[in-house]
């Protein structure tokens, strides 16, 4: 193995970015803490394209589905990756912590079972972790890696209400009237700065050259026009339809807080209802729902 991809600690208590460790002696730099949330999986693309050597990678439940995502998309050579599975009880939301504790005073945050232990100034504070976890982790159905070569420790149980809360937000928005829905989404997309972080972070968005980056034909205007922003978000969602494995990173890292997971989940819900339950990223060998069909499929439009 030429390197392992994991997480390390950075300047602030809430920063645990991905790190590429090539020196085994530096292994102590690897950390596993409440903020090791960013998926290292997509970095495998560039790694494999530029280097023939094997690489090790640490993956949480969601990240492991990203591995399957890339495998199903034939973008990864599995035999060149050693996957270390890390069962994950959920990651902390720095914003939620910040809302309750003075950010500047926090020295350290660790997760101990279902408790979050904060060192604030000289004090140690223990709080129930659930209230401080990322929303996406509260709806996570697969906290345990679904593909790995070695599992680091015992599997954890999925959160009890993950199933029910999965589509709660989707249902809330869907129950609005058409115009209200439009205004709701208009308000969300208005904030979009077109930075493409949602796309670039998404393991399902793994095209070599994204269609939005092409000049001829130009499918997406570069201007931040509201209709073009809508165009971008519709087609982005469509391209991950049936392929999105619900890691929720698009929404989490969106600087403008656009609730993209609501859109992704809506498509998942529609697809499940129409074509049978399908969860992307659990099996790398099957065919995503939009790549297949059944003669008796229902249509979501008036067929008459």
């Amino acid at each position: 193995m030429a390197a392992v991809i994991g997480w390390r600690k950075k300047d602030f208590w809430w920063q645990s970015p991905v790190v590429f460790l090539e020196d085994p002696a530096a292994a102590h730099r690897l950390v596993w803490d409440p903020f090791t949330v960013y998926s290292p999986v997509k970095f495998l693309l560039e790694w494999q394209a530029s280097c023939a050597a094997k690489v090790g990678i640490f993956v949480k439940g969601c990240d492991s589905r990203g591995i399957n995502r890339l495998l199903q998309d034939k973008r990864l050579e599995r035999e060149r990756v050693v996957v270390y599975g890390v069962p994950c009880g959920g990651k902390a939301d720095a914003e939620k912590i910040r809302a309750s504790f003075p950010a500047k005073g926090i020295k350290d945050v660790t997760l101990l079972g279902e408790q979050l232990v904060l060192t604030v100034g000289d004090r140690e504070v223990r709080v129930a972790a659930e209230a401080y976890l990322l929303d996406k982790c509260l709806t996570c159905r697969h906290p345990n890696p679904v593909v790995y070569d070695k599992l680091l420790w015992e599997e954890v149980l999925p959160r009890q209400r993950a199933d029910e809360s999965r589509f709660a937000r989707v249902q809330a928005v869907a129950s609005l009237a058409t115009e209200e829905r439009f205004f709701y989404w208009q308000r969300q997309f208005e904030r979009c700065i077109r930075c493409f972080a949602c796309r670039n972070t998404c393991p399902a968005c793994n095209c070599r050259v994204c269609i939005f980056d092409q000049a001829e034909p130009r499918w997406l205007g570069k201007a931040n026009d509201p209709a073009d922003t809508l165009n971008y978000h519709i087609i982005r969602a469509f391209h991950v339809a049936g392929r999105c494995f619900e890691c929720g990173e698009c929404e989490r890292i969106c600087p403008a807080g656009v609730p993209l997971q609501e859109l992704n989940r809506k498509l998942i819900k529609d697809i499940n209802e129409a074509y049978g339950d399908y969860e992307a990223g659990l099996d790398a060998t099957d065919q995503p729902p939009l790549g297949t069909y059944r003669g008796e499929d229902p249509a979501g439009f008036d067929e008459s």
Binding site: I234, F238, Y293, A299, F301
Partner: peptide
Amino acid sequence: RRRLTVLKQM
């Protein structure tokens, strides 16, 4: 049918 169902509902 599948693609446009998804698109339309979206």
